[in-house]
């Protein structure tokens, strides 16, 4: 299943709807890079609220996505990491270094706006 990408002003919003396979996650990364390049988005929100697991592959994919988007001039913010998921990630040594985070979609958009201001 492809993750829908919405455009809101200068920002792109990708709301993950269900657990993703590695392939689907890589697909999302490619789609976002493609969209961001075409629309000249200034920021991207990746909403992971529904993910009940964030393993090393997912974390690595999000990190590399953020770095590539940065090269395209777009800021990335990952929102909605659940308490249990955050706990497990830290135990695993995954800290999403270099990636901005926010509580939820609303906060994520506010973060991007504050950054642009």
């Amino acid at each position: 299943m492809r993750v829908p990408i919405l455009k809101q002003g200068e920002y792109l919003i990708a709301s993950i709807q269900s657990a993703l396979t590695d392939q689907e996650l890589s697909q999302l990364k490619d789609d976002l890079l493609d969209h961001a390049g075409r629309t000249r988005a200034r920021g991207v929100v990746v909403d992971v609220t529904v993910l009940d697991v964030m393993d090393s592959f997912a974390a690595r994919t999000l990190r590399s996505l953020a770095h590539m988007l940065d090269l395209l001039g777009a800021a990335t913010v990952v929102v909605g990491i659940q308490p249990e998921v955050a706990f497990a990630m830290v135990q695993l040594g995954l800290t999403l270094e270099g990636v901005s985070t926010a509580l939820d979609l609303e906060e994520g958009l506010a973060f991007l706006q504050a950054k642009a201001a």
């Binding site: 990491i81 308490p83 955050a86 990630m89 830290v90 509580l103 994520g108």
Partner: peptide, 12 residues
Amino acid sequence: VQTVEASRLMGA
């Protein structure tokens, strides 16, 4: 350090 990092992942 872990507590701080986990909080940051949640956006705090």
